[in-house]
Design a protein around this nucleic acid. Structure first.
Lengths: 210, 210
DNA sequence: TCTTTTACATACTAAGTAGTATGTTATGAT
DNA sequence: ATCATAACATACTACTTAGTATGTAAAAGA
């Protein structure tokens, strides 16, 4: 056929994308289904064809969107670094430098959704938990690698450190959001770096590549 | 004087208290005015007599309630410790140990409100910013004291450290909320403690003080 | 004591809200 | 070509929402 008039997969992901954006900007409870379909080019009928309830859209965003976002932003890039500790610091730096101004007061989508919905909806809680644990666990894998490769002191508890790193990263975005000030990025990056330098067996070099 | 039939101050603070509880449990956008007046013993007419809009209740909670809560929980107790660094660690420990089980997945009220409302409502943002800055600034005052009293290395940048401490504390509650696991309290407390020990001129111990 | 003002209470409204009922049309299988 | 089904579209509903209109009783002031 010449032109496709229907593309269900595309329609669904389109709804996920628009839904993500709207939720990111207004919060899950602050957004209506009408608002989401209004911003996209599909109708309410289509929306409820793909997602039986508004919550189901939110769940799908966590499962398919936020999960992917975390892996892409924080985990996969680490594979390129011989020293994972250096990699973690480097990626943190790059991510905060590249963080767009309009997102400063919007914070981290994962954290936003978790702080808003975890206590309210147990399904959200469980799904957000899974993504957060994935983030921490994958970070820990790289810390273990760093340890065996001699980049981290043998006494370092990798799980504790992984939790610390992710917590501080999330906390950094949350604090930047609350204070509405980019400067906290540098300040907290500096603190994380100092912390990691202490735990490194060889000094973590100063030249963070651009 | 016989019995007071009306006590405007009490009615108002009652609404603040009930409002705080309901918002803490359901989020600001997840709570309705009807819900709040339903849980209290006043009517809708009374509510709107004190607060022209639902948002105004939220603002008042930040200004009068959260601000007080932060000072009482995190700042004022520090006055009792000769070594403020020890005080900060000690209070953190005490607060997480005493943190009730049902609040674990509810997180920190200040952080909740900020993550939910800062991006949505600029008035909330400004008010939450004020409270957060108060927390950081008051913490820094104690860090400066610690420095002059010889408990912290002279090289320590107190503002950066204050931001780091508050961010990690907030982050700790946020992570415990997301993971629904008390163990992260101990893990992150351990990390903060290790961090502060490095910056202390004399070893920070639970039982030993200089 | 009388009057004004504050502190409530009751009933209502207009504008959303998530979700449904009921279509119609495209598409893939037979 | 036919038919079943998936992919939408439109119109509606039952309910909730913040806020208002209007009233009344208790205090405070004169």
């Amino acid at each position: 056929m010449a032109v496709r008039k229907r593309d269900p997969e595309k329609t669904r992901t389109h709804l996920l994308q628009v839904g993500f954006q709207e939720i990111y900007q207004n919060g899950f409870q602050g957004v209506s289904v009408d608002q989401i379909v209004g911003k996209s080019s599909v109708t309410k009928g289509a929306f409820f064809h793909y997602f039986p309830t508004k919550s189901d859209l939110g769940y799908a965003i966590v499962d398919e969107f936020l999960r992917e976002m975390i892996l892409e932003r924080w985990i996969r890039p680490l594979a390129a670094y011989p020293n994972p500790v250096q990699g973690i610091l480097n990626r943190f730096k790059k991510n905060i430098v590249a963080w767009p101004e309009e997102n400063l007061i919007r914070g981290c989508p994962l954290n936003n959704l978790s702080q808003e919905m975890s206590a309210v909806d147990p399904v959200f809680r469980e799904k957000l938990q899974v993504v957060m644990n994935l983030w921490i666990d994958e970070t820990e894998k790289y810390l273990k690698k760093a340890k065996t490769d001699g980049y981290l002191k043998k006494t370092v508890q990798t799980k504790q450190l992984a939790q610390f790193i992710v917590t501080l990263q999330e906390g950094t975005y949350a604090m930047a959001k609350t204070l509405g000030d980019r400067k906290v990025f540098d300040s907290l990056y500096g603190s994380l770096r100092a912390h990691l330098e202490i735990l490194s067996s060889s000094p973590t070099r100063d030249d963070v590549r651009e």
